[in-house]
Write a protein that binds this DNA or RNA. Structure first.
Lengths: 252, 252
DNA sequence: CGACAATATGAGTATTTACTCGTATATTAC
DNA sequence: GTAATATACGAGTAAATACTCATATTGTCG
């Protein structure tokens, strides 16, 4: 019965999403075949339909919220699309009307977080550019703001960062992202007069990696408040002393 | 036929390992019921049998090698136990004679890598302890050696670090590990006279996190040789300047 | 050799779970 | 109103794949 037109399906649509990661030779035959209207192109990983009516937006929102809660509460391993739909109070069919596959939901969640962080970074970049503001202060503010953002959905963010398997695509995107930020930082380093200029590109990468790692660690690690404050201080110290130009003293 | 004794199996043994991660309510009924001898206790995640005879050791080695190759070549998503066995030239049954589940193979691989790194860290700790050696030099050697180790199986290590989903257990182990290293570093910081002492514990965590992140980045990122050297220089600079005591100059 | 343990085999199974599609209902357009 | 479209539904399916177990082979030790 589902068997219909043997040719039509067969090895369709990458079932199983191959262990959650990049699905190989993903054919995704006829991404959607009937009904026109709000349907999106056949690019994999793009929503099939864009929500047009308010209730559709509600549905999408409910799905994302349910997914977020599930993943935060139960961890990635226990998060299934059917559970998400159930929890969201919508049918599994509706879920797949707006998300082409499970990964897309994860991606959406990640993008949401990313979007929340973007303005923080923008602001910090502007502050770093401002020669009137001490480097250390600018960096401190960056840290504090990033940590604030991470504190909004701490569990969710922790799981997303630590437990969710990273697809190759996601990894590549991150690298690309890093490149952009590094360019930005290089500009800043060149403009300011109080920074070392040994190798701006290398420096920018180091700064990026260190900041990212420390932020994640601070955000995801059970907070012993005392230490936390000290760690922020120390992190800021390390980064600011590092970039600041100094009349040399001991070679070390 | 396989149906035998309906009660005996049924909901046995956590099939599927639940998306590769921590399997919930994993019952693992009768881990192994017949045959005595080299059988291990029923602790999950421990080998079922320890290899006794040379050929058994061969088998285990072949399995691990095959797994390493597969994961390095195809990525985590395409690595299945059956493929591993095939590639290793042993039967799937033999595989499960020495590994209780798929995760155990991954764990083994990770432990192998960890074991390779252990002595490097030990040596570096000793060098860091030696007041006659400049901090910067000790740190540089640490970096160089770590990168050497990572260069042995670069693909494998990259996938293990970036693609493989981390179980909660693994995450907890890492935290525990960090604690141990941090204690060690705190001791060193206290002994040396040329280091700042603002907050040794915080400092040690910062050092650990930064070193780990930078090493991983340097090891897993396509190597533009020029930059690579510069990055090592810069990383060493950042860390050593950070720990070194300085007559203060500008507050920043 | 003979008994007993260690090791190897691999077809078969159970289970999970992402995803489809025919159909029903709500909304909008005219 | 009614046609057309957007949305919702959810039982059912296919496929993947981790893992078992009955049986066969090989090694060891007296």
């Amino acid at each position: 019965m589902r068997q219909a037109t043997p040719t039509s399906r067969q090895s369709a649509a990458s079932k199983h999403v191959k262990a959650r990661a990049v699905s190989p030779r993903s054919k995704r035959a006829h991404v959607l075949k009937g009904a026109a209207g709000a349907r999106r192109a056949s690019s994999p990983d793009l929503p099939r339909k864009l929500p047009r009516q308010p209730r559709a937006h509600e549905t999408v929102k409910a799905i994302l919220q349910a997914a977020a809660k599930l993943i935060a509460e139960q961890g990635f391993a226990l998060m299934t699309t059917n559970k998400i739909a159930e929890r969201a109070g919508v049918s599994i069919g509706s879920l797949y009307q707006y998300f082409p596959n499970k990964t897309a939901i994860l991606t959406s969640l990640l993008e949401e977080h990313q979007a929340g962080i973007q303005p923080v970074i923008e602001q910090s970049m502007r502050e770093l550019e401002d020669p009137k503001l001490a480097f250390s202060e600018a960096i401190r503010r960056l840290f504090v703001r990033l940590l604030e953002k991470h504190a909004v959905h701490p569990r969710l963010n922790r799981v997303l960062a630590e437990e969710v398997p990273r697809t190759r695509r996601a990894i590549a995107l991150d690298r690309h992202n890093e490149e952009a930020y590094v360019n930005r930082v290089v500009e800043i380093l060149r403009k300011r007069r109080d920074t070392r200029v040994a190798h701006p590109i290398a420096m920018a990468h180091i700064l990026f990696q260190a900041t990212q790692a420390l932020t994640r660690w601070l955000a995801h690690t059970p907070p012993e408040i005392h230490i936390r404050e000290a760690c922020i201080d120390e992190a800021v110290k390390m980064l600011s002393v590092y970039v600041q130009e100094r009349r040399r003293r001991s070679a070390g």
